[in-house]
Design a protein around this nucleic acid. Sequence first.
DNA 1: ATGAAAGCGCTAACAT
DNA 2: ATGTTAGCGCTTTCAT
Lengths: 348, 348
Amino acid sequence: MNRIIKMPQLKKRITIHDIAAASGFTASTVSRALQKDERISDATRILIESFAEQMNYRSNAVASSLRTGKSKMIGVVIPLFNRTFFASIIGGIETVMKQAGYSVMICQSNDEYESEKEAIRALMQARVDGIAISVAAQTNHFDHIQLIKNEQIPLILFDRTCAEMEGHQVIIDDFKGAKDATLHLLEQGCRKIAYFAGLQHLSTQKNRTLGYKAALAEKGIAFDDNLMIITHLKEGSGDSAVNLLYEKGIEFDGIFAASDYSAVAAMRNLQKRGVEIPKSVAIVGFSDEPFTALVTPALSTVNQHTNLMGQAVANLFMTLFQKEEQPSFVNPIILAPELIIRASSLKK
Amino acid sequence: MNRIIKMPQLKKRITIHDIAAASGFTASTVSRALQKDERISDATRILIESFAEQMNYRSNAVASSLRTGKSKMIGVVIPLFNRTFFASIIGGIETVMKQAGYSVMICQSNDEYESEKEAIRALMQARVDGIAISVAAQTNHFDHIQLIKNEQIPLILFDRTCAEMEGHQVIIDDFKGAKDATLHLLEQGCRKIAYFAGLQHLSTQKNRTLGYKAALAEKGIAFDDNLMIITHLKEGSGDSAVNLLYEKGIEFDGIFAASDYSAVAAMRNLQKRGVEIPKSVAIVGFSDEPFTALVTPALSTVNQHTNLMGQAVANLFMTLFQKEEQPSFVNPIILAPELIIRASSLKK
DNA sequence: ATGAAAGCGCTAACAT
DNA sequence: ATGTTAGCGCTTTCAT
């Protein structure tokens, strides 16, 4: 004797075949209808769409990706999330890519070579359609980035690039940013401007150094090696840099720090020593992190128009995706930074 | 007459079939060998591995994902990248997931319902194996989150959760954090503690309010509605909150702000008014953003052990992945916050 | 305007 | 220990 037993219905995901069965068409017609292929009549399309809706269908991007070879995803590798700088760039990238139907997969390198390599591996395995990278501080060889090019995956370097790698670039004019900042300090009457520099193998930092020097040169002031202190620019570095200047007995009447964190830490150290800011020492930072407007005195800094930068990256992707073959080089996109003058540097 | 013509060799990606052909085995053996299946002899495995290496093979995660139904990716949706808070949580998640061979796909909701919904849609289309969400400030209905549960995708709510949704949770003990902060201010002698609160429909903010009130109650101080000012807690809000207190002529000798940005903005406003901190007004913030140690006076705040929180999320995922069926509920994981006492609140 | 059939690259149940 | 075979869900060429 047989009795019908209700199986514990495993809620299988709906596929185009289910819709095909339900609607009486075939899977290909369903596929075409959902893609709004012109060859499908409006009536059929609308019918199929309503079935899809009712049956709660969501297309399987994995299957689609396997078939078409396009994942409609791009990957972005950044050093760290904990800077408004990168957050804002990604915001710009996402805004544009989303409109074009792309998802953005973000990975952190923690400024380490190994993590960066691993992130790239993961993105390539996920078969993303393009990869954008701001290279890690510790990265000094580029074989892992070369892999991307070898596989003909569109590659964009942004912010931190590397001279050793040719590729598409979206960068800030760090030279101009640093030069403007330094010129501003000079115009405020500073003559001995300490420069808290970042690691000089980074393209951005190298260019900031050139900008600093160019400003000095323009005003006929000799570059003084003692005033340039190279650090990792993390939170504590401004503090130790100021201490170093004092220990060495080096006089200074201004600071240009290539990082806001470093600048604020320096400011705090000087205030503890009773140094008046900006009267005795004027300070300018770099990046326009939100807290710079909140410290006392408010920190002058250089805004990098990060959101625009992100949009530029995304737009470049859209251009690259249209090309059959990846062009090995296009002119870099260079964005202009903007000096934000606040109380920390205004002597007059 | 025939001549051999060299075709412009399209560098096709290497598949297991190519390796099979080159090594003389079949695709399944290659697949097994590369997965280190025990049934394949060491000799064969090593041979195949060397072929793979030489031929520059990378496995196609998309194909593998389609076949196995597992993507080895998880998705994380956060409101915004521009807080060290979320950056650090993600760092914790990534550390653990990577070790287990998972990639992490991160999306921003910008605190908007629509973006959050869109992010979830993208993650589900990518067929991630699990989704972790810290819900957007503007989200007030949860149908999109319900979708995740409907599809039986492991779901973890972290930090900001919602009472309306049952699900796995990893949260901070916001109640305790706020209570400790307020008690500390009371112990410093404050009697009229202004409370700069966040939007009260957020679970975290609601709990902080309860903590604030509990501390007052414990010390026998009546809650004064005038002292509680609800804002979005963004950068400018601390400033306007202080202005409001002055306009209304409400006296206060302490501030507990549910955000570091708000706290620092308030501090700055008061300093401009010539109010001494912490002498006249003691201040405590929330989150321990890195810049809080850099302002003058350094800001007392509540550290939320974000990295641990991220690790807890990841570990919970690993547990959930092992279950055949998703348990509808497990006890929430509640992490203890830590009060960081700095100069801004030390009267004694 | 719609259908049939093949295949993207991989894995796994079922052989042997 | 290795091979055969089928199929994940989709797109797309070729038919009609």
